[in-house]
Design a protein around this nucleic acid. Structure first.
Lengths: 196, 196
DNA sequence: TTATTTTTTGAACCTATGTTTAAAATTCGT
DNA sequence: ACGAATTTTAAACATAGGTTCAAAAAATAA
């Protein structure tokens, strides 16, 4: 049976994607080299091509993987039966925890690269839009249920996601504050913007 | 007299720095090529080397220029005699207005590049720290004067600057909302986090 | 105008890195 | 253990882009 093989291949792909994301973090898109991605896994750059068509394909799939993880996270929050305040708090914490633990993954999100094909670009933007919409839904719900003030949903969402996404720029695994502390504080302060 | 020459040279350097910043915006550090910087000014890449030692030097000076503009802005806010609320509001608006008008300049700020020498890196980080400190000072003042709640200064500052810096990722000159509207809304919402 | 200095050019050079490929190594079923 | 399929390798290749440089062009001074 080949599913065993397929599974192994999938796993390897995952490893490569993670490695790629890790490099993306501090080198940026163009700065990320096949060599470095491979080195982290004790492979040679040539073997990357057994799993991915080329660099752009690899980095595109990297995007998809990250977005899927994010979407799974926020979907589970949306589907839970908490009140809007707790939902927003959870969504914020979830995002930060993901961004700081799987830290490597997140940076890849900013500025979907110009090397992407039109099709790939659309897909990435679509997934992003979905993610944003989930936040909007939570905020809307809060307004409807009168627990949030009559805020400008889009603006507030942009502020929140901006604050969250920027964390990658300064977060340090070995820094003074834990991801847990950061996420608690962020949730508290950001909620002050919207709760009545 | 050579000051005329020197002036002309300085002006040309400025043009190049601006062009560089514009390219930096959507190509990122490694994606920015000497060729493209030159092309925008109808020059050849070779002539860039008459003005700058090399690419890293050019992009480093690009950083310095941007930071100086930012610092000038916030310094004038600090020195004004407004109350803390208005100071913070002004600082936020100033930052956004700069980031969206001289938009091209700002993107260069994220992730000071690894190609910088230790010395250059320190200088950039130092300037950044100064900028952060100005925000901290405003927030502190607000707390001392009891117009702000007893917030965690560093956290709040990180949230604010994060939200502001992220604007570059989505702001569109021709988008539905003007920079003015955006900055007003941002200031309003962000202030809600801190005012009593 | 002529000579000198400044600025720009465009070709040449070099290195880094994405990509290909044939051969070697490994894995796996029987 | 043997042979076939899969995976990895290392070297070769191609190209993009940073850098240099000598010559040309332009600006300036005398």
């Amino acid at each position: 049976m080949s599913s065993f093989r397929a599974q192994k291949m999938a796993k390897k792909k995952q490893e490569i994607l993670r490695s790629a994301a890790a490099v993306l973090v501090d080198k940026g898109y163009q700065g990320t080299t096949m060599e470095e991605i491979a080195a982290k896994l004790l492979m040679t750059k040539g073997s990357m091509y057994y799993y991915f068509k080329n660099k752009d394909d690899l980095l595109y799939q990297c995007h998809l993987m990250i977005m899927e993880i994010c979407l799974d996270g926020i979907e589970s929050v949306i589907d839970s039966n908490r009140n809007p305040i707790e939902k927003l708090r959870c969504a914020i914490k979830e995002h930060i925890l993901l961004a700081t633990s799987e830290k490597s993954m997140f940076m890849a999100l900013s500025k979907p690269n110009h090397n992407f094909s039109e099709e790939q670009l659309q897909e990435v933007l679509e997934l992003r839009k979905s993610y944003s919409h989930y936040f909007d839904r939570i905020i809307h719900e809060g307004i409807d249920k009168q627990v949030f003030g009559p805020v400008d949903v889009k603006m507030v969402r942009l502020i929140i996601l901006g604050a969250l996404n920027w964390i990658q720029e300064w977060y340090d695994q070995n820094g003074p504050q834990s991801a847990e502390e950061i996420s608690d504080a962020y949730a508290d302060y950001l909620l002050k913007m919207v709760v009545k």
